[in-house]
Design a protein around this nucleic acid. Structure first.
Lengths: 264, 264
DNA sequence: AGCTGATTCCTTAGGGTGTAAACTGAGAGT
DNA sequence: ACTCTCAGTTTACACCCTAAGGAATCAGCT
């Protein structure tokens, strides 16, 4: 299930996202035993460990020694909690790439950091970023990327599109790796095992494979299966390779745009 | 929730995927009133209309005048049904781009067709393609892309990575548009409405925005809001723009690789 | 000191989900 | 006519989110 930005009380949500000095005004009623902060962190812990499907209000409550309903005084609903988790997690991302002299190096480092980040928090890829959450850390991540891109001295319109292109690509590539990893965990079957069973079945059920898909057959026939790191499962390694190569292609494309802009 | 390839009986699943001549052997017991085909089509109909969250076994059964449990004699479980839906839907995609003389035109057309396809069947983006389903139509889509890329006469390794890069990019870009559309449907709030409420709240809650995010502020300040088509909501239009521009960047990058290969 | 009223947190309940298990009843083969 | 197989149903379980309302807590005022 993909999740969308909270449709609850917008003012309340924004207040929680941008909460700073927790003005601890003395109020009647029992002193709160929990805090939004604690709930967000407990929820992120669960999501990191058990994925989005393991994240339930019950589970979060339980981790804090409460019932699910106890959380609803701090957070309007599960969607709002997800928004808060999202923005909270983004704080982890590095914000400064001025150390890299070349813009190309800076963008490569930025992309790698994002990749690592998404693999650390795979559930983030299931929070829609179509309508952004508008939290402080989300803006910070865009700011960080724009600062790098500003070096290119391209028109604002191009920069805006590059922001979209780069984030789309990095998210998409990371998603592949995350899904490969999740498939393994979920099915309890390694990539090798899976491929072994399936490929023999495939030969059985589609004996005319090579006639039916000649280009594909030719492409795969010359394949050398050299694993660069035995400990990383096959599909994940493949995803990482593709990520690197694809990023290089995108950066080459940006260089072309740069040259074009200089000539004009 | 993202869904992974069926972990049920692999032989049975593959048989259903590649089923061809339905050998209608006479068997005891009541004549089946349904068929896998009918179930797949009913399920796709529901998913197209109500999205993945509307797709339940109960709903599919109901559409066919049966209970949810009736489906389980045809299909092992919901995951298997999703695999079948996935491969079935892919049959819609065009398979021939030989009409485009230039590889660049062919790839652009391919990408646009994929984009349209995903916007027509948004739920497809929620079926993981990490471990592929290994159905006939899925192989066909790869074959189609490889045939186009073969014109470039690049080494097989590069072609394989381009396949990954292009599909990742197109899926990612389409996802953004799909999510924008879904956010609208789910929240019952137009993009404009949403932005209006949120942006005024933002000014209230983050008065130091422009100091905190100077590059971002500068980037957005010079923005011209020219809508090319009033009927398409703002965020979706933005996604389409980014898609086009990003694709051009990737293709530019491929051209660079081509030139490099020719020199070497 | 005692009350008031706000606030936290709980219990209960209702409407979802996927699917296991046991059952009914149709119909082909002997 | 009998039997065996299999389509489809019913029932049930374990999970999900969250609305509603009640119990416990405690600051501030009288």
């Amino acid at each position: 299930m993909v999740v969308y930005a909270a449709q609850g009380d917008a003012r309340r949500s924004m207040g929680l996202l941008w909460r700073e000095g927790s003005a601890d005004s003395a109020r009647p009623g029992p002193r709160p035993a929990l805090s939004v902060e604690m709930i967000i962190e407990a929820a992120i812990g669960i999501a990191d460990a058990d994925g989005m499907s393991g994240l339930s209000m019950r589970a979060v409550g339980e981790r804090l020694g409460r019932t699910a309903m106890a959380l609803y005084t701090y957070v309007a609903n599960k969607n709002e909690l997800l928004d808060l988790m999202y923005d909270h997690a983004l704080a982890e991302l590095p914000a400064d790439y001025s150390g890299h002299a070349e813009w190309r190096d800076a963008l490569t480092a930025w992309a790698r950091d994002n990749w690592d980040f998404f693999l650390r928090h795979p559930w983030l890829l299931q929070v829609s970023d179509a309508r952004s959450v508008l939290g402080p850390n989300e803006f910070q991540t865009v700011e960080t990327l724009v600062v790098i891109l500003d070096r290119l001295e391209l028109p604002a319109k191009d920069v805006r599109r590059l922001v979209g292109t780069l984030t789309t690509y990095v998210r998409g590539a990371a998603r592949r790796a995350v899904e490969a990893r999740a498939a393994q965990a979920e099915t309890g079957m390694s990539d090798d095992e899976w491929w072994l069973t399936r490929s023999s079945l495939l030969a059985e059920v589609a004996p005319d494979f090579s006639q039916r898909y000649p280009a594909l057959t030719r492409l795969e026939s010359g394949r050398a299966f050299q694993m660069e790191d035995e400990s990383v499962p096959y599909l994940e390694q493949e995803a990482r390779e593709t990520f690197r190569a694809g990023l290089a292609t995108v950066l080459d494309g940006i260089e072309v745009a740069l040259r074009r802009a200089r000539i004009a």
